[in-house]
Simulated scan of single mutants.
Amino acid sequence: MNKKETRLRRARKTRAVIAEKKAVRLTVFRSNCHIYAQVISGCGSKVLAAASTVEADVRKDLSNGGNASAAAVVGKLIAERAKAAGIEAVAFDRAGFKYHGRVKALAEAAREGGLKF
């Protein structure tokens, strides 16, 4: 197995547990240059809120979309948008990535923004 396959295997296990609970989930994806976050409904078929470093209003404030400070900005933004959609509590789906660095920065910023997980 390569790196991507093992990450996706870890992600599948986490998503199975979250799907059993029918919880709203905060999903994170990180690439080398950007980080993306989505709040997905309990049934898994509808995106309720989204934020990323690709968006124009986020990019104008950042010099680099692939660092921890950019992830913190996305975390605060996703928390604001989720609260606007009426979502208080989510299950954190890190998509098989280690809870470290950019993923951790996004999660902590979302918690500071008022999301509970």
Rank of each mutant, 00 (worst) to 15 (best):
F117G: 11
E112F: 01
V28S: 05
K3H: 06
K76N: 14
K98V: 07
V74C: 05
V103M: 13
A68L: 06
G75E: 08
A56N: 06
K116V: 09
A56V: 06
R12Q: 15
K104R: 15
S41Q: 08
G75F: 02
V74R: 05
C43T: 11
R81P: 00
S41A: 13
N64L: 01
R10S: 13
L26F: 05
L106P: 01
A84P: 05
S41K: 04
Q38E: 06
I87A: 14
A79T: 10
K46N: 12
A95H: 10
A85F: 12
N67P: 09
C43D: 15
G44C: 14
N2M: 05
R111G: 01
L8I: 04
F29M: 09
V47P: 06
F97S: 12
A50D: 04
Y36W: 13
N67E: 13
V24H: 11
A107M: 04
G65M: 01
R111C: 03
V73Y: 04
E112G: 00
K46C: 12
F92W: 09
R81N: 08
L62E: 07
K104H: 15
A79K: 13
R59V: 06
A50G: 09
E88T: 15
D57A: 10
K98F: 12
I35D: 03
K83F: 09
K13M: 02
A19C: 04
K3G: 12
S45P: 00
R81M: 07
S31M: 02
E80S: 13
V90C: 10
I40F: 07
F97E: 09
N32L: 04
A72K: 13
D93K: 11
N67Y: 07
T27V: 15
V47G: 03
R12A: 15
F97Q: 12
S45W: 02
V28T: 12
K22P: 00
V73C: 00
G101T: 01
Q38Y: 02
L26Q: 05
A84C: 09
A82M: 13
G114T: 09
I18K: 03
L48D: 07
S69T: 14
A89V: 06
A68V: 10
V58C: 02
G86R: 11
K13V: 06
K4P: 03
A105G: 08
R94T: 05
L26Y: 01
E5L: 14
L106S: 05
T6M: 14
S45R: 14
R10K: 15
I35K: 04
D93T: 07
H34A: 01
V73W: 00
R81W: 01
A79D: 08
G75K: 08
K4W: 03
A11R: 10
N2D: 15
A68Y: 03
A89Q: 14
E5I: 09
C33H: 03
R94I: 09
K22C: 10
L26I: 03
F29Q: 06
G101L: 07
S31P: 01
A85T: 00
A95M: 12
Y99P: 00
V73E: 05
V47F: 02
N2R: 11
K116F: 07
Y99R: 11
A49M: 08
A37I: 04
V24P: 10
V54A: 05
E20Y: 03
A16M: 10
R111P: 03
S69F: 07
A82R: 08
H100S: 11
I87T: 10
G66I: 01
A72E: 14
G86W: 05
